[in-house]
């Protein structure tokens, strides 16, 4: 408001400054949420460390599965052992980044609806989806994402890969698109809690689908492949970034598809969220 008054041409520069003003306001809110999360996590240090152990254990377990598979074969489609290890690393990385920012918040949404606590968030003078999605940060997930990066680096060495800076940047960009897909779909499912109160089960059910993302895409065929490429694009999320990194891309089409699907998923989830909020009738007394 103030900047508009001081500004002689409100149409042009005023608009831009309003955006930066908005951005800095949201950044400061987000910084406050981070501070909160750090304080919360440090209250239970032992538990924080144990969760990291749990995640490492599950990560090792997925690797052991691949180890067992490759005891009995040389390749799955054209994917060799270390390429699949890299795929598992990338999939874990994307999943952990998603978990760091969004997962708890998505699973908490049904609790917010059930207890009527959403009222308070709706009344805050910020975008509700913003607060609901980013309220808590899972710090342990960053540590686990680090272990995934270490594994990918090791796999790349085994494959004698030397990716260029462009490939690495592209990989990271595609990872962001992957995180956006996971987040959009999970948030869309969490919005179901406006219809049935116990949506937590559905949200955890979706978590099962993450398993698909770490499997080599060439194993799949038919309807399954179509559904998990074009409707729930799990087969794109980590396969495409790894293909870019490991020189396994024949054409840029999969990249465009992944980027396109991430935009589509985000738009659908925004539409679902808006429709759902309209249905919200507070549960508190």
């Amino acid at each position: 408001m103030k900047s508009e008054i001081r500004n002689p041409k409100p149409e042009e520069t005023g608009h831009a400054s309003r955006i930066t003003h908005h951005a800095s306001r949201y950044l400061s809110i987000y910084a406050a949420l981070w501070k909160n999360s750090v304080a919360r996590e440090m209250g239970f240090k032992g538990n924080f460390l144990l969760w990291i152990v749990v995640e490492l254990l599950w990560f090792g377990l997925q690797l052991s599965f691949i180890g067992v598979l490759y005891l009995h074969t040389e390749h799955i489609g054209t994917w060799t052992k270390w390429q699949v290890v890299m795929l598992i690393g990338a999939s874990h990385f994307i999943q952990q980044i998603f978990q760091a920012f969004f997962l708890i918040n998505c699973t908490n949404l049904s609790e917010l609806v059930r207890s009527g606590k959403l009222d308070f968030l709706l009344l805050l003078p910020v975008n509700t989806r913003f607060v609901v999605s980013l309220r808590q940060v899972d710090l342990g997930a960053f540590v686990n994402a680090g272990s995934a990066v270490a594994l990918m680096a090791y796999a790349a060495r085994q494959l004698h890969l030397a990716p260029s800076a462009g490939q690495v940047l592209g990989f990271l960009g595609l990872c962001v698109a992957g995180v956006a897909i996971h987040y959009s779909l999970m948030f869309l499912l969490a919005s179901i809690s406006f219809w049935t109160v116990r949506a937590q089960g559905i949200v955890w059910g979706y978590y099962n689908l993450f398993n698909i993302a770490r499997m080599p895409d060439e194993a799949f065929r038919g309807l399954f492949k179509i559904v998990f490429t074009f409707a729930i694009p799990m087969l794109l999320v980590s396969n495409v970034p790894v293909r870019l990194l490991a020189d396994k891309l024949a054409s840029p089409r999969p990249i465009l598809l992944l980027l396109g699907m991430s935009v589509v998923c985000f738009c659908v989830s925004e539409w679902g969220w808006r429709t759902s909020v309209r249905r919200y009738t507070s549960a508190s007394s």
Partner: peptide, 9 residues
Amino acid sequence: AILYVWKAI
């Protein structure tokens, strides 16, 4: 998904 992977193997 696991069955698909086995089939490919």
